[in-house]
Amino acid sequence: MQNGSMPTRPSPTSTIPIQLKVNGQQHRFEIQPFVTLLDLLRNHMQLDGTKKGCDHGQCGACTVLINGVRINSCLKLAVSVQNSEITTIEGLGSPENLHPMQKAFVEHDAYQCGYCTPGQICSAVGMISEGHAHDREDIRELMSGNLCRCGAYTNIADAIEDAMGATASSCKEAAE
């Protein structure tokens, strides 16, 4: 700032180049600096499995994995995860080849309306790869950031508990 002038701010329409690896594929974007990772995934990549619930980081519907760590994508600016590895529900499995956690959710009827399910599954995969869940009480505590509007918590815990032993290595691999 010379001569008392104010610093210049970027124009609201200016864009920033970013590079991300999403579900194993490299992507480049020109986006506005205020675009959240959630909006980038849904609006720029058409990966609409990640849901916009509260848009305030309180419900977990938008949970994805960034470098194997579960995060609320509505709270992350896309530019802040430059060069990161992002895994969404679409990157965990497919209808023909479900991830073990997805299979457990189906087997235990761990969903009702299904709106929270992608975030629940991504969070469960991340939780297992973190290695902190040892029993049902741990599961309930570590999954408390993921809300289910339908109240399918018992079935969700059953699915995670069932998948936890059999899929710990699969979840770690998917998160990495």
Rank of each mutant, 00 (worst) to 15 (best):
P95F: 13
I71C: 03
A104V: 14
E107L: 03
K52E: 13
S73M: 06
T15E: 12
S5T: 13
I86W: 04
G53F: 12
I16Y: 09
V106Q: 13
T50E: 01
G53Y: 01
M45I: 06
T87M: 13
S94E: 11
P118D: 09
L38F: 08
H134V: 12
C116Q: 04
T15C: 07
L40G: 00
Y111T: 10
E107T: 07
V79M: 08
R42A: 05
L65T: 02
G131A: 11
T88R: 05
N67D: 15
I128L: 15
P17S: 15
G24L: 13
A78R: 09
Q112K: 07
G93I: 09
V79T: 14
K76F: 11
H134C: 04
G131I: 13
H108N: 14
Q82I: 08
V81A: 15
Q25K: 14
K21I: 14
V106A: 10
I121W: 05
L65K: 02
G126T: 09
S94V: 11
P118K: 07
I18P: 00
E90Q: 05
R9C: 14
P33F: 03
C113Q: 06
M45N: 04
K52V: 06
S129Y: 01
Q58F: 02
I18G: 00
S123E: 02
L77K: 05
K103H: 09
G131Q: 11
G4F: 11
R28Q: 14
Q32Y: 03
S73Y: 10
P7S: 15
V22L: 07
R42V: 13
G119D: 07
S94I: 09
A78E: 02
M45V: 02
N67I: 04
P17T: 14
P17M: 12
D39Q: 09
G91F: 09
H99A: 10
M127R: 03
R9A: 14
E85W: 02
V106M: 15
Q26F: 03
Q58N: 06
I16M: 10
S14T: 13
C116D: 01
I31A: 07
P12M: 12
P118Q: 08
A124F: 07
R42G: 03
N43T: 07
L47I: 09
